[in-house]
């Protein structure tokens, strides 16, 4: 009943009943108010992404079959602006027909699908909230890429590693043996993708050592790739973007040639991320450049 009157007469009525047991109530003192306000000062720090990418055909191949995609902006969030970024590397499978078409089709299909989903958000148009989760969108985008590759480049295959950054959340969709790494401010480097390769699996099972895997004759054999096989399950994950750290996405032309600790050293020693990214490519070429080399390096500022 009380509720009923409150609704009719508005909500101005003080809902608090006097406390019991001789407790005296008083308005908040200025000091108390200040201490509450101090906790909740709204600082505005433009949080944004710094992005660079580089690519080389390598020194032993004639064709580049890698494709890459980068897009970075900020979007107006519910109460503050949030960085938005989409980064994709696809490595068309060597020895297959149209590897380069497959990798290009994959990045186009994925970027098309995801950017269409965020179209209204990106252009600040009125929109209803998305029903799907970030991981569902990524999963559907990879499935779309699988369809597109099967249709546009049948018989070919490609890896794909796609990273969607929204706010501080980094959502990865991954198939094959391109890699995503997080590099933390203390130079620790952590792969956030798992290669879908035979040697990696044999290594995980303790059948071969990492050293044996690096020179295994079948180290290029994938058990999962876009455009190959009837069923495809992409690996999906979401991790926080490391503060003061980096995201690196690269094809095996980089990570297969330069050890992880060497890569993080190159990145941290470079004066800018642009230089760092170029130095990574140069290092892979200096080591023989046996395959196409692609790398995207991203830093979250603010």
């Amino acid at each position: 009943m009380l509720n009923f009157f409150r609704k009719i007469f508005g909500k101005k009525e003080e809902p608090v009943k006097p406390a019991m047991d001789n407790i005296v109530t008083a308005p908040l003192s200025d000091v108390q108010l200040q201490s509450i306000r101090a906790m909740t000062v709204n600082r505005f720090e433009p949080s944004q992404l710094l992005v660079t990418s580089a690519q080389s055909v390598g020194r032993q191949r004639e064709l580049n079959e890698d494709s890459l995609f980068t897009l970075s902006t900020t979007i107006a969030g519910h109460s503050s602006n949030a960085p938005f970024g989409l980064f994709i590397i696809a490595d068309g499978m060597g020895g297959h027909q149209y590897g380069e078409i497959a990798s290009n089709t994959a990045i186009r299909a994925i970027s098309d699908y995801i950017l269409k989903k965020f179209h209204n958000t990106l252009f600040h148009l009125p929109s209803i909230p998305l029903e799907e989760s970030l991981q569902e969108i990524m999963q559907a985008a990879v499935a779309e890429a699988q369809r597109a590759v099967l249709h546009e480049a049948p018989g070919s295959g490609t890896t794909v590693t796609a990273a969607l950054v929204l706010g501080q959340q980094l959502t990865i969709g991954h198939v094959g043996d391109s890699r995503g790494y997080l590099i933390y401010s203390e130079q620790r480097m952590e792969a956030i993708t798992r290669d879908h390769s035979l040697v990696r699996r044999l290594e995980e099972l303790g059948q071969i050592t990492a050293a044996e895997a690096a020179v295994h004759p079948q180290r290029n054999v994938l058990y999962r790739a876009l455009g190959q096989g009837e069923t495809l399950e992409a690996d999906l994950s979401t991790t926080p973007f490391p503060i003061g750290g980096y995201l690196l996405i690269c094809s095996d032309g980089l990570w297969g040639v330069i050890p992880d600790d060497e890569m993080s050293k190159i990145i941290f020693e470079a004066p800018t991320i642009q230089r760092g990214c170029q130095n990574l490519i140069a290092a892979a070429n200096a080591a023989g450049g046996p395959d196409n080399i692609s790398a995207i390096l991203v830093q979250l500022l603010g």
Binding site: A82, E136, L166
Partner: peptide, 13 residues
Amino acid sequence: YAVDAKTGWLIWR
């Protein structure tokens, strides 16, 4: 549901 704590974006369900 798993939702980004800062922005309210749905990460997965």
